[in-house]
């Protein structure tokens, strides 16, 4: 464990908690892409199948359970509890255009052709594109509440910190996970234009992000 990975995991946890609390306390999921949240729940489900088979550490197990519970709870809030506030007309990204290529690639490019390894690879590839329905929804509506932008900021920051973690691990222990690194770079690149808008607009005190 290194400081970049720890900060990355904390940033990821903060993002997930921000989103959950925003929906739970405002009793509304307006402006939130349910599709992205379903994809994230799928990412955690396919990645954490080893939750019961391989024990890494208490921290690892606890964080996996927390991520799984919060992501499914968020999907529940969006599609069941507060479904009247779910803006399905704006959440129109065709997720099959993500799932099919990601599934295909995880069969072609993986470390080991076993079910658990292919599912782990699928989760890594899927995570890099899972935010696209949410970013697409924001460009479609042309705006996002500031709390949603804070969610996206910490979510984007988490994988950027993981990139630093991989540089650190490469130089200190020769660790190099090519699939995770390449996907992490792609994932972080998708956030770049959002990061620019976030710094230039939201941090200037605007109540909400309105796209030009």
């Amino acid at each position: 464990m290194n400081v970049f990975r720890l900060l990355g995991d904390v940033s990821h946890l903060v993002a997930i908690i921000i989103l959950f609390l925003k929906i739970f306390r405002s009793k509304s999921c307006a402006g939130i892409s349910g599709k992205s949240q379903v994809l994230f729940a799928l990412v955690f489900t396919t990645r954490y199948l080893d939750l019961f088979t391989s024990f890494i550490s208490i921290y690892n197990t606890v964080m996996k359970v927390v991520f799984l519970v919060l992501s499914y709870a968020t999907v529940y809030l969006i599609y069941l509890r507060f479904r009247s506030s779910y803006d399905s007309e704006s959440d129109t990204f065709r997720v099959e255009f993500l799932l099919v290529p990601v599934a295909g690639l995880s069969f072609l490019e993986n470390y080991d052709f076993t079910p658990i390894e292919i599912l782990w690879t699928f989760s890594i590839y899927l995570e890099s594109v899972a935010i696209l329905p949410q970013l697409f929804m924001i460009t479609k509506t042309g705006e996002a509440e500031s709390i949603t932008t804070h969610y996206l900021f910490f979510l984007g920051l988490y994988r950027a910190l993981y990139l630093a973690n991989w540089v650190w691990r490469y130089h200190t222990e020769g660790f190099f996970d090519q699939i995770a690194v390449v996907s992490g770079v792609v994932q972080t690149i998708f956030y770049c234009d959002f990061f620019y808008l976030y710094v230039t607009k939201v941090l200037k005190g605007n109540s909400k992000l309105t796209l030009p």
Binding site: H12, R47, D50, I56, N60, D112, E117, N165, A180
Partner: peptide
């Protein structure tokens, strides 16, 4: 190279 099956990252 990564150790197979041992994903120690979240």
């Amino acid at each position: 190279e990564r150790v197979l099956g041992a994903h120690d990252e979240l």
